[in-house]
Amino acid sequence: MTSNSVFTRYLPLLLLAILWEVAPRLHVVDPSELPPLSAVAMAWWGLLTDGDLWTNGVSSFINWSFGLGGAILIGIALGVLMAWYQTVDDVASPLVKALYPMPKSALIPVMILWLGLGAGSKIASIGMSCLLPVILSAYNGARGVDQALIWSARACGASEREVLWEVILPGALPEILAGIRNAVAISFIVLVASELLVGQRGLGYLISFLGEGGVYDAMFAVVITVSALGFFADRAYLYFMRRTLVWRE
């Protein structure tokens, strides 16, 4: 490849789109199982104009932002404190290690059992799933802060608390931001999975509702919407991350 213009970069996507349109129309695949792209686009427009996409999107957004936001706040606090205080580490570390390999979606039924079918169980599922990568990144980031940096601050007269806020936290930031990126990816998976399972609201619910009703073009429209949202969330996050870490070259 010599050229990396916008055209060549998106060429594979364009080819996929053409294939998606042509294959069902030529009955290479069953159009009732994979409706042509144009039909999906029409269905998407329909969902957008009658407000279904919007109301369910808002509902999903609320669950997502509370779950992910909570995980970020609690995860950073816990990870940094584990790195800083040996006793916190001794108590929390075995729990974190035990929970780490657990499949995130396995938490959903447990949360439903405890918190019911409403938003609470979804927020908790997302929060619990996103917590571990944030904790680990904050822990490793805080651990990795150069001892001499901490000592320099202490020699300037910084208190232990000030060192925590002014040296450990910003020092751990690059790792924390990378951890949050993983959490964002996980959050989308668990969001959709939890709404697919139960509930009467949200984009995941819309997918399962349309799928069960056999409205496959609309179902695909929602699936694509969720994928696009995930993609753009990651892009926006990457941009934010680069802006925040300008000091690294």
Binding site: D146, A148, W151, A155, G157, V167, P170
Partner: peptide, 20 residues
């Protein structure tokens, strides 16, 4: 008894706050 501003220190690896 502990670090203090009466004793300033300079390390080999500069130890500047990279975000400042």
């Amino acid at each position: 008894h502990g670090p203090g501003p009466d004793r300033g220190i300079v390390f080999q690896n500069y130890s500047l706050f990279p975000w400042k």
